[in-house]
């Protein structure tokens, strides 16, 4: 048993990447945001990038709390404005790697405009959008990604609004890298984050995550484990699938994979090029 004692003294491999003085985190049992953080930490570990040069920015909401748990320079900003704040950081110091981790409500609803325009400008950011189909921290209201006809506290007769298709939105706006995984595809998710991280330009990784407390409870879908099992049975990996086909219907198949991978000049490159031209003239 001696070996076990020495192992028990070992640190969790992610302890250096996370603010362990704040763990346990606030997320409910069965929530998938922890998995997304775990995948992100795994990606950082694989990247072996200088963590002093990595900045994590979050907005508000359940996923907005991610920044507070990751041991890099991290910012917890206002609702929806994480991308705008990150834009400032990236332009202020182009050597930094800026990662925005936030939820679907934060990035696609209130921050939708910033999402679209950062993608259009091709600001060098990696956006990890944790999509749990609901506004969880505010009490389970209908989100821009809630499928029809899911129940939420503000859609007591079932949701009738067309949900947003995040990869399609990102592609249309000009993102250079778009992937989607569920919280169960941990290795692929981590690999995707690594790829997105290394891609110059605006990259988006959507993480479908269970909300055990609101989304699955009000829709009687069981707990987090049941949601995970649903992803296990119903997610189909189709790389390069047209983003038109990526709508998520209620309790139907979820297509995951890497959908967009292209090259466009990033904003800071273009800006510097123009400034140089201006000086030459």
């Amino acid at each position: 048993m001696e070996t076990i004692n020495t192992i028990q003294e070992q640190k969790h491999p992610m302890d250096d990447l996370l603010r362990m003085d704040r763990i346990p985190h606030i997320w409910c049992p069965g929530c998938g945001i922890g998995n997304a953080v775990s995948a992100f930490a795994e990606a950082l570990r694989k990247l072996e990038y200088d963590l002093d040069k990595v900045v994590v920015v979050s907005g508000i909401g359940c996923t907005g709390r991610v920044a507070g748990y990751i041991k890099t320079d991290s910012f917890h900003t206002t609702h929806g404005r994480a991308i705008a704040f990150a834009t400032g950081i990236k332009l202020g110091n182009p050597d930094l790697k800026v990662i925005v981790i936030s939820g679907d409500g934060d990035l696609v609803s209130i921050g939708g405009n910033h999402f679209v325009h950062a993608a259009r400008r091709n600001i060098d950011l990696t956006v990890i959008c944790v999509n749990n189909f609901i506004y969880a921290m505010t009490g389970g209201q209908v989100a821009p990604t809630t499928p029809i006809p899911a129940y939420t506290t503000t859609s007591p007769f079932g949701n009738f609004e067309a949900p947003a298709n995040v990869p399609q939105l990102a592609e249309a706006a000009g993102a250079v890298y778009v992937a989607r995984w569920t919280a169960l595809h941990m290795r692929r998710l981590a690999d995707s984050i690594v790829e997105a991280f290394n891609r110059p330009g605006f990259s988006v990784v959507e993480v479908i995550s269970p909300c055990a407390m609101y989304y699955s409870r009000i829709n009687k879908l069981g707990d987090g484990l049941d949601m995970m099992q649903f992803y296990y049975n119903n997610s189909i990996i189709r790389h390069g699938e047209s983003t038109d086909n990526l709508n998520i219907d209620y309790q139907k198949e979820i297509i995951v994979g890497k959908f967009v991978d292209r090259e466009r000049p990033a904003f800071s490159e273009s800006l510097n090029e123009w400034l140089r031209k201006d000086q030459v003239e």
Binding site: T3, I7, Q10, H12, P13, M14, D15, L18, I23, P24, H25, W27, C31, G32, I33, G34, N35, V37, S38, A39, E42, L184, M186, R187, A190
Partner: peptide, 17 residues
């Protein structure tokens, strides 16, 4: 290492013995 990656609470990990 899948238990470690899949744990949302950073509560489990494995080491090669």
């Amino acid at each position: 290492g899948f238990c470690q990656m899949n744990c949302p609470d950073f509560a489990i990990f494995s080491v090669e013995v």
